[in-house]
């Protein structure tokens, strides 16, 4: 028999290293001799889109388009340390460092422009389209190239450093503020359980993810899709088969991951609640998008067949056994 059920899972997740551990990101931005913007950042791109969104943030501060920025990434001989691409921290931490570095560069360029144009102050001076100009009298302007020339041999280079604020938990009580910021997410899934085979199919799924501010909505959607598939694999397929420290399921024939046929089209709801300490309000979502998937699926299975599963992955054998045991218990308790 096929039985359907729905389930919800919700999490809040503290991004960054946390627990008072020094979590530092650095970035450098340069106005090259040709007047081009070069961004140096050590953040690692693993497909999550760090290079894209970090460049977007720099472009926003400097009033240029993304194409106008040359990104130098992941080269330890010239890029400053931006910490690991882990803990869902690059958007928030390195984003902040980049924003600071670019704000510093912008301020330096404005200083040079104020002097060059003989202005009274920096009030009303804007940086846009590769030039610095006076908003109330746009003819008063200097291009990035001219600023670079004025600067001479030594290029204009500024740094941005961001250190996240977290505190160590009290070892006795476990109390404290170990993380900042947190992101929140909810998954809702509908499953169909085949009570004869023990197979679970996800028939519908929806994810609502708090992102602070969506710097690049398409990348966020991709992250959610990927997180869902990974969470789904975690919940019903993936089993390392650890025996005495040895991984028995060390190939795709026995370590199963979801295929395109296992993943449903996912309804994605991006929730924007800007975080004040974040760059443009944006927070990381890499891990948050997968955590609530397994609980939502387990709850949906409970809703469908009335059994509480406490061990994952929920392989067909495990599920059939649980359904059978549950039936037996109920029989003994005289409930059916």
């Amino acid at each position: 028999m096929k039985k359907r059920g729905i389930g919800i899972g919700s999490t809040f997740y503290g991004t960054g290293y946390g627990n008072g551990f020094p979590d530092v990101s650095k970035a450098i931005v340069e106005l090259s001799q040709e007047g081009e913007i070069v961004l140096y950042v050590g953040a690692t791109e693993v497909g999550q889109g760090a290079k894209t969104i970090l460049t977007q943030m720099a472009a926003e501060v400097l009033g240029v388009s993304v194409e106008d920025i040359t990104l130098v990434c992941e080269d330890t001989s010239i890029t400053p340390d931006a910490g690991t691409a882990a803990a869902s921290r690059q958007t928030y931490n390195t984003g902040n460092a980049i924003k600071r570095a670019c704000e510093n560069l912008r301020d330096e360029m404005i200083k040079i422009a104020v002097k060059q144009l003989g202005l009274n102050s920096s009030i009303g001076v804007k940086v846009e389209n590769k030039k610095v100009y006076l908003n109330i009298f746009p003819d008063k302007k200097v291009s990035f190239k001219e600023i670079a020339n004025l600067q001479g041999e030594e290029t204009l280079k500024t740094e941005g450093i961001f250190t996240a604020q977290t505190t160590k938990m009290d070892e006795e009580t476990g109390q404290g503020a170990p993380y900042w910021p947190y992101t929140f997410s909810v998954y809702g899934v509908e499953v169909e359980v085949d009570t004869e085979t023990g197979l679970v199919e996800i028939t519908k799924a929806v994810c609502a993810q708090d992102v602070g501010k969506a710097i690049n909505p398409k990348l966020i959607e991709g992250q959610i899709d990927g997180g869902f598939a990974m969470g789904l694999g975690y919940a019903i397929f993936e089993d390392l088969g650890l025996h005495n420290g040895e991984i028995k399921h060390n190939r795709f024939t026995n370590y199963l991951i979801p295929t395109a046929l296992d993943v449903p089209d996912l309804d994605k709801i991006i929730i924007e609640a800007p975080e004040t300490t974040a760059p443009y309000g944006a927070k990381g979502i890499g891990e948050p998008v997968m955590i609530a998937v397994a609980p939502a699926i387990l709850n949906a299975i409970y809703n469908a067949v009335g059994v509480r599963i406490t061990e994952i992955p929920i392989t067909p054998e495990r599920l059939l056994k649980a359904i059978k045991d549950n039936g037996k218990n109920k029989l003994e308790e005289g409930k059916i």
Binding site: G222, D225, A229, I257, T259, A260, L261
Partner: peptide
Amino acid sequence: IREAISGNLCRCTGYNKIV
């Protein structure tokens, strides 16, 4: 489409954007 790419595993995208 899903059927046609079901022999291609992807760990990152969750397939939907590929579809």
